[in-house]
Amino acid sequence: MRYISHQDQQLTLSETAKPVLQAHQVLVKVAAIGVNRADCMQRQGKYPAPDGDSPILGLECAGTVIELGGDVEPHWLNKAIFTLCAGGAYSEYVAVDALQLMPLAETMTMADGAAVSEVYLTAYSALFQLGQLQVGQTVLLHAGASGVGGAATQMAKRMGATVVITAGSDEKCAHAKSLGADHAINYKTDDFVDYMQSHNLTANVIVDPVSGRYLNKNAAVAAMDCQIIMLAFLDGRFAEVDFARLLQKRISFHASTLRNRSQAFKRQLRDEFMAMFYEDLQAGHFNFNIYQSLPWQQASTAHDILERNENAGKVVLFVE
């Protein structure tokens, strides 16, 4: 099969053997691939694949099941699906755990499916498993025009929450509002703490890929018993922390990743997301927030878009 290799930070179409299935897996003929910052970091040598995962890039895809492992239910054969992958999605074929598959709704294209798994499952875990977001509460989403931010905005609004986002341009703020955000703050021109305090807003849940200097600022706008979920540390690894403010507001702080979670965790996450939001997917209630779709021969261009922080939403590669 063809796949996209990465060597010396360069992406090149190469050939290798098809994956050999384990009993619990299916073989997917890949039609579209979701591009994520983790792919860029792995290409740069900063985020190697966990032990046991494919060393090939790619954490999510959409495609068609063409072969079943011995323990897999037969109804999956020839089904159009989208799914998380334990690496390997930048390929013509990828082996996937069958219990993580999600059926591609008739209302969805393959590109739509490729744009869902990583960001929606990450956002779901942050908002509902860790954040315990409830109807009528307020959520603050940093990087609100990102793939995760767009997914979180739409799920939070379906739940009946108020959504406040931060983003780095007026255009990205407008994009976030088009997805349902109630308040959109351009952090380059407005301080989100000043904005929220002037609008009498406090956050019950904060989803933050920035961290660093944002930790104390988050605490300043946190409601009592706020849940802060850190997804990355774009502002740096270290920060001084005002622990008195954390104690005063009984703030809970969570650090969360998805890639290195166990297979059992990912299966459970898939099941919970499907139970809560799959009918919305089928009914077309979500904007899949695709910034650009490119042929997979242009994977380097896709990585450049993410590394320049150009995109508002997902970048997808389609396999030709």
Rank of each mutant, 00 (worst) to 15 (best):
S14K: 15
A312P: 08
V221W: 02
D191R: 12
Q292F: 07
L127C: 06
S125W: 00
K79F: 02
D53T: 13
A126G: 05
N289L: 06
A283I: 04
Q282W: 03
G34K: 04
E73I: 10
D280V: 05
L258D: 07
V135K: 13
G136Y: 04
E60M: 08
M230W: 05
K172Q: 06
N218T: 08
D304M: 09
P74I: 05
G52E: 09
A223F: 08
F273R: 12
A156Y: 01
N200E: 12
F277M: 04
R308G: 05
S262K: 08
M230C: 10
C85K: 01
M110C: 02
V163R: 04
M108N: 15
E171V: 12
S256A: 12
V72Y: 01
A143S: 15
E73S: 15
G87H: 07
M276D: 15
A89H: 07
Y214P: 00
D190L: 13
A126T: 01
Q42E: 07
H24E: 12
M276C: 12
L140A: 07
A283C: 07
G69A: 11
V28P: 06
Q100Y: 00
A203T: 07
F265G: 05
A152G: 05
Q268W: 01
N309W: 00
E307D: 14
H75W: 11
L27E: 07
T16E: 12
W76A: 13
T202L: 15
G34N: 04
A114M: 03
D71E: 14
S91R: 11
G150L: 09
D8L: 13
T12M: 12
L13E: 14
Y214W: 01
K188M: 11
E106R: 12
L130C: 10
E171N: 09
M155L: 12
D8E: 14
Y47H: 13
I206S: 06
V148W: 01
A31D: 11
Y120I: 04
V164D: 06
I81E: 07
G147D: 03
V207A: 03
K266F: 02
G63N: 05
L84G: 11
V30Q: 07
H75R: 14
A86P: 04
L294T: 03
A220M: 13
C173K: 08
R237K: 14
G147T: 03
I81T: 08
L133Q: 06
I228Q: 12
D208M: 01
M108L: 15
A151S: 11
A123R: 00
V135S: 09
L306Q: 08
Q154H: 09
R158N: 10
A115K: 05
F233Y: 13
A126Q: 02
D39W: 03
R245A: 15
E67G: 08
G87P: 12
M102T: 10
H6W: 10
D39Q: 04
K266C: 04
G52W: 11
F277R: 02
M108Q: 15
A98V: 03
N78I: 00
A95V: 11
Q7R: 14
G212Y: 06
A62W: 00
P103R: 13
P55G: 05
V26Y: 05
R261Q: 15
V241D: 03
A239S: 15
